[in-house]
Design a protein around this nucleic acid. Sequence first.
RNA 1: UGGGGUGUGGUGUAAUUGGCAACACAGCAGAUUCUGGUUCUGUUAUUCAGGGUUCAAGUCCUUGCACCCCAACCA
Length: 566
Amino acid sequence: MTDPGATPPADRANPPAAANFVRDLVRADNERGTFGGRVQTRFPPEPNGYLHIGHAKAIHVDFGIAEEFGGICNLRFDDTNPDTEDTEYVDAIVEDLAWIGYPVERALYASDYFEQIYQWAELLVTKGLAYVDDQDSETISAQRGGYGKPGVESPYRSRTIEENLDLFRRMRAGEFPDGARVLRARIDMQHENMQLRDPVMYRIRRGHHHRTHDAWVIYPTYDWAHGQSDAIEGVTHSLCSLEFDSHRPLYDWYLEQLPLPFDQPRQIEFARLELSHTVTSKRKLAKLVADGIVDGWDDPRLPTIRALRRRGYPSKAIKDFCTFIGVQKTNSRHQIELLESFVRDELNRTAQRRMAVLRPLKLVITNWPAGAVEHVTIQNNPENPDDGTREVAFGGELWIERDDFMVEAPPKYFRLTPGREVRLRGAYFVTCTGFTADADGTVTEVQCTYDPDTRGGNAPDGRKVKSTMHWVSADHALDATVALYERLFRAEVPGEVTGEPFDDLEPNSREILDHCKVEAALGKAAPGQVVQFERIGYFAHDPRTPRLFHRTVGLRDEWANIQKRG
RNA sequence: UGGGGUGUGGUGUAAUUGGCAACACAGCAGAUUCUGGUUCUGUUAUUCAGGGUUCAAGUCCUUGCACCCCAACCA
């Protein structure tokens, strides 16, 4: 009998969904019949930046809730600020969303509703619930008061409905310069919630809008557009991030004044995803790109979706991670190790194995028949026999990993050292008979003998070796470039100490290895394909540059742990 | 300073809503292994603090404390 309250052991291939208070609220609404059993959500990015891992969580919540209840989730661009938005971002967001697993047939735009939103604003004016204010933004801001300090009313607050309507229409007609006037809701300048102290609904701004172009010179603010767009579309549950919770009374207030075509939507806030050792704010990401700290928006060190894709993160792993961490109301930062564990998990099942030597050291088999070449058969993925086998060329001169040989082997070092026998994966047992070093003491070549009876990697007499090593035939190796990545920021919380995240940048977040030796099969790696370099890690073939591999994530490395412990 | 939100191992998330505090990551120990990978077993460690109600409190009451958000014509 297990404890019914306990979390069941995880099936990492199909991680259990964490409890989800949003789901509970939606279910309760359904049982109560609040929206006639309908569930509709939306994913509302502003097209002014690229999607990142934090958006992935929002996407899985927004689309996931809709899916779960048989409802729909629309992609709707929150494009109410012409100054910062661009079709470049629209296209990128659509593309990234499809990769995450939600291809959209037709994107929606808040800008499609500008006319309706404007008409509703006129309605508020007509009801005496909105007025035109001629003051500048500094004055309005100063009059707003402060925490615990009531605001003061604008001298324009008591204009007549007729005057307000006239001025508002002339704002739309373009009679006033940018910033000259705003439309404000008339709510309560003493309200304890600052959001309700007569918020701005419209501002005059002659930016060129990416879709409506120059049709408008006034643009609605977020608060006076978001709930309205939700209502027009028939959204039932408007899921957003925590910082909007103080906006919820305003969201509701606006909607309560309007004749809605559907039931009034409900806003529910949940915590954004933060990850250790990285940043997700648009401003900081843009600065990393602009300052040339990374090479572009798809630099594999970035947490953007396109960077993770290029780096080889499977979208399935991102989805499983999002499902696993669930939805909460607490601000928290997940360790990037957890995401990586989902990446390894998925790639362990799906990535074919190959041999690649990153820091080559020549190994010569002194008793190998001169010029002979053999082909050994190696499984593509021991975790998935369906992936079959491949033939790998083997000869008397090989490349092995520099780390796999030591002149003086410390305790617990199982790899090659003079006098020791090891297995070369899928091929033969070899015993180290000597080595050559240059004047500095750097080893330049290792000599071994092989045991012809161990072909395939097994000794007929049943003797064991402590280590199996990867290798590449020198005559058949291909040259490749491998990019190794460390965390972009060495601190878990960049900027936690100094307040400036860039103080915590890892200066060596990328190491490029040029003359790596890889097995011939990697010459046929597809663009974007992710493989496991045996004993090293998972590597993604670059989508554009052949023979360039990005380290997705390393394998767990017990030997590294032993060395770290000393 | 007023309002709102949130506090569970090192980290993150659960707990049949008052009934043995669990799952994962990380760590440690061991087994298996033709990857020091994978897999398997074991193990370390948790309810912000004080008070109260109760047979029983992570959960209810109370008093504190800490952290986050809110005074853009950004979203």
